[in-house]
Design a protein around this nucleic acid. Structure first.
Length: 273
DNA sequence: AACTTGCACAACCGCAGATAA
DNA sequence: CTTATCTGCGGTTGTGCAAGT
């Protein structure tokens, strides 16, 4: 990428504005280094003065965004794992487009990344299904088709990561997603943790370790018969996420098992899925 | 090989709330 | 109390790349 072609000055017709010469567009390696070095010495915050003191011809906003979304050391790169996707789907159903709040529950993931994921992957599915991504119908499709597939992939991954060739040497046992939940270890704060969440806390624990797996985690639900959703004699009240979690039952107790999970796949199977 | 299209993601913009003066 | 500035959030846009034609 040519710097000259991508970094451009803001439109400026006056000498005064030209003298400010604020840079926009993609960050250069040099700018990144300046920002990293300055923050490592002085800490983050006070972004406007930081931008000036660091010698960056950027707005404070731009510096903050660059740091939080890209340069911060604990930022996780790579595909979202099924666990993370599952968590996003649930939390979005609960909190809506509160990306920063959702991001708090996914260590190392930024609100921007989650927002992008939602727009590019989730909304794409909704478009292809010709339903509104905020509709109950789409929510139900996620619950009944998408999430079981993600859980399936999680199970596959857990068997892969437990193999001798696994990179996961810290935890030699399979990520016990369903057998030994440890609620107290959930990264979600006590105050913020979704009530009756069906997402096992162990899943949350494993999220931080899963990003080494760069497999194809995309799940496509558009091949499923959406008409089944409207014809099914299943009340939406069964799926009131805010009340009973994803699978329509009271999961106040976070101790859940595989059988319970797949029990809710039966309607799909009856539909010939 | 050239062109088009769609996707993924980085970055920007506008707004609102918080804080300082 | 009022005003100005800063900060954070969510929505949107721009760009590079890959796949398809």
């Amino acid at each position: 990428m040519s710097e000259n072609s991508t970094v451009y000055k803001s439109i400026s017709n006056s000498y005064e504005e030209a003298s400010m010469e604020l840079r926009r567009g993609p960050w250069t390696l040099e700018e990144d280094n300046l920002l990293i070095h300055y923050i490592s010495c002085n800490g983050e915050g006070r972004w406007n003065s930081l931008a000036k003191c660091a010698g960056l011809k950027r707005t404070g906003k731009s510096c903050r965004l660059r740091w939080l979304n890209y340069l911060k050391p604990d930022i996780k790169r790579g595909n979202l794992t099924p666990q993370e996707q599952l968590l996003i789907l649930e939390l979005h159903s609960k909190w809506g487009n509160r990306w920063s709040k959702i991001a708090e529950c996914l260590p190392g993931r930024t609100d921007n990344e989650i927002k992008n994921y939602w727009r590019t992957r989730v909304q794409k599915q909704a478009r292809q299904l010709k339903v509104d991504s905020n509709s109950n119908k789409f929510l139900e499709a996620i619950q009944r088709f998408w999430m079981p597939r993600l859980l399936e992939k999680m199970e596959q991954n857990s068997s892969v990561t437990s193999s001798p060739s696994s990179m996961d040497t810290q935890n030699s046992s399979p990520p016990s997603l369903v057998t030994n939940p440890t609620p107290s270890m959930s990264p979600v704060s006590e105050n913020e943790q979704p009530e009756n969440s069906v997402i096992p806390s162990q899943v949350c624990d494993n999220i931080a370790d899963e990003h080494s797996v760069q497999d194809d985690y995309h799940v496509d639900i558009t091949s499923y018969d959406m008409s089944a959703l409207v014809s099914e004699d299943i009340s939406m009240s069964e799926f009131q996420v805010s009340e009973f979690g994803w699978f329509g039952e009271d999961l106040t107790c976070t101790s859940w098992n595989t059988d319970e999970l797949w029990e809710f796949r039966k309607p799909d199977q009856e539909l010939g899925l």
